[in-house]
Every structure is written in structure tokens, then in C-alpha cells.
Amino acid sequence: MEILPDIASLINSTLRISTPLIFAAMAGLFAERSGVIDFGLEGKMLAAAFVAAVGSYYFGSPWLGLILAMIACVSLSMLHGFASVTHKGDQVVSCVAINILMIGLTTALAAAWFGQAGLTPTLTDEQRFLEITLPFADALRDIPIIGIIYSDILSGHYVFVYLAYLCVPIVFWIVFKTSFGLRLRAVGENPSAVDTAGINVFTMRYKALMINGVLISFAGAHLSTAVNANFFREMSAGRGYLALAALIFGKWHPKTALIACLLFGFTDALQIRLQGVELPAIGTIPVQLIQAIPYVLTVVLLAGFVGKAIAPNAIGQPYVKER
């Protein structure tokens, strides 16, 4: 019976670690389904983490910090749209610019405002999101199985964790059951068809990017005002790229992208567990090797197991009316 709490805590951390990946993957899904590559998830996540931490610190409310992070991320998405949709620039270049700019800008601003390179002040409990204990969690703890599932796995997460898992079915519903979703998918597959149906291709892509900005801001705020109590340099740590990999692995579909995010989250959780564990015959595995697991998995999955991931047909192509 000793193994059960271990498994419970592993699942618990998987749910938590997957959260920013899920937001980022869903954000990427909107952009890429509309035909705009979003390589800039990483930079936007970083920007959101920074703005959320600073906003919460100044205004004393993590919700205000979140709103400011949203504004920042939507602005960055609009910038990406301005460069790559309106001016038909190279989408990857625009994303890389955002990523590099955000690494530098967050570090520099933190240094300028708080005197510490790449660090923001620690937030008090009022200034950050706290773990939510679900009702009756303590009372139900002693019931076998259900107690573990409810009290140890489902209860005690930050608000973002619940939002993330709520977000996936909503995204699915929007993308596949509404007229907006139909137009979104069409504009990423064949923008000419959308144009000739009397819908503005550019407006559609901007709308998608706006949703993209809102969703990615949750991922950043989760990092700096929930899981941690401050922003630190490059705290997104490649999660934006990992989420993009999950999106591709999930073939641009919310359900499979969720599974991919959970898989990455799980290997990360496992990785943390395995650190320092002595294995018989082998001994302690070097930490670096274990930490590499999620990334190695990404490469292996993308290279081999996914099969052909068929991207939206018009992805990466600025829309130009035929001449």
C-alpha cells in the first residue's frame, strides 16, 4: 500500500506541470489553425510571467497582474500579426525576434526596476495565487481510493490548473462546433476559399492571434504568481517550445495535444522523482541525464512515432490575393 501515495503525488505533479504546456499548446492551436506559425509562445510566456509578477507586486492583486499579462501578450501577438499577417513578413523570423527580445527585455527591466538582474521581488500571499483546497477534501481523505483521487490528486491545485483542464473542452467546442471555428480552420487550410466566401482573412487571423495572446498569458502567470512567488530569468525554460512540439505531436487537435502535454508533464514529474534515486546495479543516475528525458522524448516522438503530422495547409504563408 506504500506505493499508492507515491503514484498519487506523481499524478498530482503531472497535472500541475502540464498546466502551462496546455495553455501554450491551446494558444498555439488558435494561431496555427489560422495559418500563422507561432514559434513565439516561449517569448510570450516569459513576458506574461514577468508582467504578472511585476503587476501583482505593484498593485497587490494577482488578478490585476494577470490582466496586465494578458494585455502584454495580446500586444505581442498583435505585433506578430502586424509583421507576418499585414506586412506578410516571415513568420518564423518574427517569432524568433519576439523570443529574443523578451529574454533580454525581462532581464533588463528587472535589473532597472528592482536592481537585481532578472529577478523580481518575492510576492506575499496576498499578491499571488494560492492553492485551492476543494470542499470536503479533508473530510473525504480517509475513504479508500476516492479519498486519494479527490483529496490528494484533484484538490490543492492553483486556479490555473483547473482552468487549463476546463479550457481544453472549450477550445474543442469552439474549434469544431461553432461558425468561428469553421472559419478559423478554413483560413488555415485555404484562405482563398475564405476570402471568396466574403470573410476577411486578415481579421480572422488577428482574432485568432488575440485569443492566442490571452491563453498564453495564463501560462506565464501560472509560473510567476502561482507555482513560484517571483519572476526569474528565463523561467519559461523551453516550455513554449515543448508546447509547440506537443501541438504538432497532437496533430493540431485539442484532445491529442492535451494527451501530448500530459505525457511531457508526466516525464517531467517522473524526472523530478527519479533524481537521486539509487537504482540497483546502476547506482545513481546523473541528474542532467534524467532532466534530459522530456526533451529526448520530444525528439524521439516527433522524429519517429508521430507518423506524418499534417499541418494546416496554408500554415506559414502570408495571404496574398492571386494576381
Binding site: L182, A186, E189, N190, S192, A193, V194, A197, G198, I199
Partner: peptide, 16 residues
């Protein structure tokens, strides 16, 4: 001007 992986009806109602 058709979206190849959509059904006929999806293509027809697109925009309307």
C-alpha cells in the same frame, strides 16, 4: 475555392 479536408456542407455554409 474549397477547403479540401472539409465536408461538402461545411464548405458551402462557410461564411453563411
Amino acid at each position: 475555392m474549397l477547403v479540401e479536408n472539409f465536408t461538402v456542407i461545411e464548405n458551402i455554409v462557410l461564411g453563411f
